[in-house]
């Protein structure tokens, strides 16, 4: 589904140039759950941002199914993003001024889904995520785990083809973290492609494939046998 070739990204400040991505090649098949790991500064978050069209690389190619995404303009990028991608962040990134329901509804609004349909979809996902009794609360009134569930719900409500998760358990204790990982697995089993950046090998063990980055290069790729066997 995703073909990334020779991706390069350089950050420039007044004094230094940092090469964040240095000729990355990466293929992700539909229905895969891929983990990207590596030390701090290896470029994994940059890669995720580029995949989510939040950042533009200097050169390379990024094909999604058969569409080249790097040549799109701003408007086309945001249109593509809102139709095909969902995001889960380490720090949840819920809007504090909106309730749980409204937060989840937001991407649907940007996708111009009619109000009745929106209500149905949000309620469906709220039920699935087991947060029905929280739908009127504001983010600050929830625990970290609950907030991340809301964030996941928000990422899923548009039924995206690809979910990008940036250290989704980073701010959670292990119990809540496991809950979120199980959620992602369930999601993957229903056919959603997931790319996750993580520090934790425990989290990575939930995925099909683990890619290790260092200094902007892919240094190793590992098929996660246990998980694949599970699947078979």
């Amino acid at each position: 589904m995703i073909k990334i070739e020779n991706l390069e990204k350089v950050y420039k400040t007044e004094e230094v140039e940092t090469t964040a991505l240095n000729g990355i090649n990466l293929h992700v098949a539909a229905g895969e759950f891929v983990s990207i790991m590596g030390p701090s500064g290896c470029g994994k978050s940059t890669l995720l941002n580029v995949m989510g069209l939040l950042d533009k690389p200097e050169s390379g190619s990024y094909k999604f199914i058969d569409t080249e995404l790097l040549t799109l303009n701003d408007r086309e990028r945001s249109n593509f993003r809102k139709r095909n991608m969902g995001f889960v962040f380490q720090n949840f990134n819920l809007i504090d001024e909106l309730t749980v329901f409204e937060n989840i509804e937001l991407p649907l609004i940007y996708n111009k889904i009619p109000a009745g349909e929106r209500k149905r979809l949000v309620n469906e996902i709220i039920e699935r995520m087991n947060i029905v009794n929280r739908s009127g609360h504001f983010p600050q009134q929830l625990s970290g785990g609950q907030q991340q569930r809301v964030a996941v719900a928000r990422a899923l409500v548009t039924k995206p083809k690809l979910v990008l998760a940036d250290e989704p358990t980073g701010n959670l204790d292990s119990a809540h973290g496991n809950e979120v990982m199980e959620l992602l697995c369930e999601l993957n089993e229903t056919g959603t492609t997931i790319v996750m950046v993580t520090h934790s090998s425990h989290d990575a063990s939930f995925s099909n494939r683990i890619i290790n980055l260092k200094d902007g290069h892919v240094i190793s790729e590992k098929i996660n046998k246990s998980r694949n066997e599970e699947l078979i």
Binding site: L54, S78, R81, K82, N93, L106, P107
Partner: peptide, 14 residues
Amino acid sequence: SKEVGVRKVMGSQR
């Protein structure tokens, strides 16, 4: 800024 970021991620245009 967070709100702006989130909205953009979800597909809001400038």
